[in-house]
Write a protein that binds this DNA or RNA. Structure first.
Lengths: 207, 207
DNA sequence: CTTGCACTTGAACGATCGTTCGAGTCCGCC
DNA sequence: GGCGGACTCGAACGATCGTTCAAGTGCAAG
């Protein structure tokens, strides 16, 4: 049966696994590597997960679901399209930076999922993408025609944000707020040509 | 000895390997898979390459070098900073789209390189990044202070472009010119706030 | 014909892979 | 004290991995 201690240990296992997957890649990581990293025996891992594939799925789905849910909560009650878009970006990058290993696995190992696991995560991905597209449509309604194709814009924004795992250093000078603000400005300035003032950016200081 | 026929067969081998790596990932692909895809026997592969790692290195370095060299040729003699930046973007995406498997391998399997191979490709990467940073500095000198941190801007642009392998369909409605133009406008409009006309860009899209 | 070299291969090497299984240990509850 | 289920593990399974090697092929030059 599902004990509370079992759930806690599974959480810890997923966190450790995400770190190892992020460092060495999913396919390069063996279950023996994970056993070493977690302190659990090789056979013991299979008490918590069905397979290595399920391990990857759990990391991706849990964190993706969290991003989606946080986003909805933060956008709830906010009406201004520009502010909503900034909140979307800030939410994504905020979670990204505070869960770097997990989000690297989510961004980089999307193609490593198979079968039903892939189908399920892709459903969430479509939902999340649709949310961004709707936000962009709302921005266009409020501020006139966009300067770029909406679909290209959406994927470009995801590219800007998700590519961060290849270069962003959480210990460096660049804080999350600044990262989020910079990407928000580049994207919004380019997409609708708005002069972006610091006051319209949530949770930020002038840069 | 290095025969002409040998070089040609190596080229074909690298092209086939890039396609399989792009489809199934480097670590998921076995040398036996490559043997099947190329029609060469398993042992025969080792007449052309030293190892699976060298295969990956050759794909990455050859194509990265080509991107870098094409870029320099296309920028040669062009003085206007904005035009130079557009050419940089167009060159990158043009090569990207016309060498999709290779560029997916270059973007996605960068972390799969090891040892000396990694060092060498990273040197090219630094050179390429430095080129973009210099272009951005020139744009700033010509058009006033930027709206975002230069380093964040550079990596964001790489993110927009390189992320394309996750969604761009070369058989779809969106041509390379339009893709390049859209990303160029989003980035430049956001980075320096240049006015861009939207007349030639479709607003609604499918999917 | 024969020698030599570019090129190709089937078969095998040891290593490592994900997963399984039976035999445990631990501990709350009767 | 003992029963039962949560939890853990060493050892092994067959499969597959990257790589090697001795033995070939075919063909141009002597």
């Amino acid at each position: 049966m599902a004990t509370a201690s079992r759930d806690q240990k599974l959480d810890a296992l997923l966190a450790d696994a995400a770190r190892v997957f992020a460092d060495n890649g999913f396919h390069r990581t063996s279950m023996r590597d994970l056993a070493k990293a977690t302190g659990v025996s090789l056979a013991g891992l299979y008490y918590y997960v069905e397979s290595k594939d399920e391990l990857l799925y759990l990391i991706q789905s849990r964190n993706f679901d969290a991003v989606l849910q946080n986003m909805r909560e933060r956008l709830d009650g906010v009406a201004d399209p520009i502010e909503r878009l900034f909140l979307f970006i800030d939410n994504h990058l905020d979670y990204f930076v505070s869960h770097l290993p997990e989000m690297k696995v989510l961004s980089h190992e999307a193609g490593a999922l198979v079968g039903d696991y892939l189908t399920r995560v892709n459903a969430t991905k479509r939902e999340y993408t649709r949310s961004l597209m709707d936000l962009l449509a709302a921005v266009e309604r409020a501020h006139g025609p966009a300067h770029a194709n909406r679909r290209v814009a959406a994927y470009s924004l995801f590219g800007m944000m998700n590519w961060a795992y290849t270069w962003y250093d959480p210990l460096g000078d660049l804080g999350v707020e600044l990262l989020s603000q910079n990407i928000g400005r580049i994207f919004l300035g380019g997409y609708v040509g708005l002069p972006v003032s610091a006051s319209s950016i949530p949770h930020s200081s002038a840069g």
